[in-house]
């Protein structure tokens, strides 16, 4: 596995974590996107990619050549990309909704769904 790929993935993860821990809703969502991409790359890199030959059986051949890329992580990552896309869309809608409801961008103040506790035992109740 190439050192520069390892470094690039690590930097992307660090940046993603930094974004996710931001107090701004939009940065948080972008952080999700960056972390998602980086995670896909970790899975992909685990199979030691290096060659250029895709995991496609050539015409005339009956099986994959030994030098071809490992197809399994590719299949995993492919579906992960699509699900990640759906997740991001959902997060964008949710974020927009919360910002409109709360009238601000700070994630820590967008706590409408979890009001502060008043009773020592009973859980706090959301007022309609």
């Amino acid at each position: 596995m190439s050192l520069i790929l390892m470094l690039a993935i690590s930097i992307a993860v660090a940046a993603g974590v930094l974004l996710v821990l931001s107090r701004d809703v939009f940065r948080l969502i972008v952080g999700l996107a960056v972390l998602g991409s980086a995670t896909n790359l970790i899975v992909f890199a685990a199979a030691r990619p290096g060659g250029l030959i895709p995991a496609v059986i050539e015409a005339g051949a009956t099986q994959l050549p030994a030098a071809a890329a490992n197809p399994l992580p590719q299949a995993l990552v492919l579906t992960a990309i699509v699900i990640g896309f759906a997740l991001l869309c959902f997060a964008l809608v949710l974020g927009a909704y919360l910002v409109r409801q709360g009238g601000q961008q700070n994630v820590d103040r967008l706590a409408a769904a979890e009001p502060a506790a008043t009773d020592p035992v009973k859980p706090p109740v959301l007022e309609q």
Partner: peptide, 30 residues
């Protein structure tokens, strides 16, 4: 997180690759 992922990747690159599944898929796919 960054350092952890880096260590994880280095660790991964030192592990032997188990190509069993890839080989099986490549053989049976067609």
């Amino acid at each position: 997180a960054g350092i952890g992922v880096f260590l994880l990747l280095v660790h991964l690159s030192n592990l032997p690759v188990n190509g069993e599944l890839a080989e099986w898929f490549g053989r049976t796919s067609l």
